[in-house]
Each structure stands twice: as C-alpha cells, then as structure tokens.
C-alpha cells in the first residue's frame, strides 16, 4: 500500500468516525431537552467539532489525492510487521483469557514466556524458551509479591 492510499483511507475513516459520533450524540441527546434559551445545549459544542473534523478531513483527503509526489507515492513499509501482529494477537488472547477464565498470574507468565520466546527466536528455540521462562517466572514472581502480597490488590 502507498502512503497516499493509507492517508486517504485514514481521512475517510475519520470522516466516517465523525459522522457516527454526531449521529450517536444527537440521537442520545434528543431524548432530553438540549436547547437552552441561548441555543447552547449539550450537543452544540460537539457538533461544531464534528463539522470541523469532517471539513479538515475532507481538505486533507483532497490535498492528498492531488499530491502525486514521489514521497506520497512510496510504499509504506513496516519492518517486523509479523512481530507486531503476533504481539497484538497475543495481547487480545491474554485480555480475553484474563477476562473470561481468570488466573491472572498464570496468564502473565504465559504471555511473557511466549512473547520473549518469539522475540528472541533468532537465538534458537531452546535458548529463547529458556530465557523466556526464566524472565517470565522472575517478573511474574515480582508482580505477585508487589501486587498480591505487599499492596493486597487482587486481579
């Protein structure tokens, strides 16, 4: 994907976001009396913001579409994109597991071990797994001591 396309998609998403914000805002506020005697109710200021966001996003979109310079046409390269996506997937799995199953410290240990093993995979699976397990055990132990024992916070 080129920088131009990414910029255009972001501008369109911002416009859609602005419209849905305004729709939700005006729908919920319509249940109440939202105009004071001066005409300045709870949706007055947010509606101005929505208008400005849509206007500025449109300006950015048009400006971007007209820009065919080499910088804007360059491909967007994300080094280590695989690692970013794996991290994101693991964090989603971690939060879901913690929310629906529980066992916070076990989840922390598993997350840290997997993350560090994957991050250090270039040093060999055995080495990275060993470093991952040891670091995860020490970190989880520290967190348990700090939050579970000293501060008395339960997760």
């Amino acid at each position: 994907m080129t920088l131009k396309s990414l910029n255009s998609i972001m501008s369109i998403l911002l416009i859609i976001g602005g419209i849905s914000y305004a729709l939700n805002l005006n729908h919920s506020a319509s249940q109440a009396i939202f105009f004071s005697s001066s005409g300045v109710g709870p949706v007055y200021f947010p509606n101005i913001l929505t208008g400005l966001l849509i206007f500025l996003s449109l300006v950015t979109l048009i400006k971007n579409l007209r820009d065919s310079g080499p910088e804007n046409m360059a491909r967007v390269v994300t080094p280590n994109l695989g690692y970013i996506l794996v991290t994101l997937a693991l964090v989603i799995a971690f939060i879901a597991s913690w929310q629906f199953i529980g066992f916070f410290y076990l989840n922390v240990f598993a997350l840290l071990t997997i993350l560090m093993t994957i991050y250090r995979i270039e040093f060999g699976i055995r080495n990275s797994l060993l470093v991952g397990v040891v670091t995860a055990a020490c970190t989880t132990g520290f967190l348990f001591g700090l939050f579970g024992k000293i501060l008395g916070i339960s997760f």
Binding site: G18, A32, L49, T50, L52, L56
Partner: peptide, 24 residues
C-alpha cells in the same frame, strides 16, 4: 488541527455535567 479536534471530541464523551445528557 485534526489531532486537536480528535482530542476535544474524546474529551466530550460521557454524561454532560450541566444537563445530565449522555453524549457519544
């Protein structure tokens, strides 16, 4: 400027303190 607007919009989410109306 768009960033400023986004920050302001995020700041308006929730129940309006003056009227009690929930917003976005």
């Amino acid at each position: 400027l768009i960033s400023i607007i986004l920050g302001l919009m995020a700041g308006t989410v929730g129940v309006d303190t003056l009227t009690g109306v929930d917003r976005a």
